[in-house]
Design a protein around this nucleic acid. Sequence first.
DNA 1: GAAGGCCTGGAA
DNA 2: TTCCAGGCCTTC
Length: 268
Amino acid sequence: MPELPEVESLVRQLRRGLEGARLAAVTLWTPSVVHGALPEPAGQKLLRIERRGKYLRFDFEGGAEVWFHLGMTGQMFLSREKTPARETHAHALFEFSGRRYLVFRDIRRFGGIHSRPTSGAALKAGILALGPDPFQITAAEFAALLKKRTGLIKALLLDQKLVSGIGNIYADESLFRAGIHPKRRPRALSRARLEKLHADLCAILSEAIEKGGSSINDYRHLNGASGRFQDLHRVYGKEGRPCRSCSSVIRRITVAARGTHFCPRCQT
DNA sequence: GAAGGCCTGGAA
DNA sequence: TTCCAGGCCTTC
């Protein structure tokens, strides 16, 4: 599932591929994936591409913003040729100057495209309420945010309003590295352990970005290549296998309605 | 804070 | 044929 490292990888590839591009045309094959009105294509220059949590944002000349969310199965592909036929599950095509064609594809349609968030309940609840991502706060601030809440630590890591960018994979992997059981409550953990979790989270996210993210099922790079961080997962998707640290059997339970993988011996 | 719904493909 | 995966929103 595209989380912070996958989106960040894509942002970096998009910056290289769309540098200096101007928006020439937009084709919407599935209008329902778009929320709000997209900018009228009139040669506006794409000024910046930024990541906010798991969202990607295009800033255009003139102030227009287009936000993308990949949901679970979202993909973006950039090609130099206009594909003659619409691919299955391709929902939108953005044509840029210099024969650059950007396709947004999303099998399960949990993702979507948003124009600049000015109103609407969904936007208020989502984009506008996003918390800082782990790189934007210090370990002390991270620990303080978690300490304010009463829920299970895994559920809190997944709460985008608290801390953004973390999804199921990196929640499980960071809790494993920090040695924290996913059902612990931050209130009952020492500040030092929460600060270590922040350090481990940042380290794992950085390593994942360096490896181009994790491709479990659908995530792909702009050119269709897979990420390589999935080979380094220690617990996610490893239920029934021996822990790489202590050889205990990795377990899978449900926390916050999400599959949750952990080592019963290393994580307390 | 828990649970249902959206959506589709693939596994059981 | 049914169930499951899950990010995020809505509803209770």
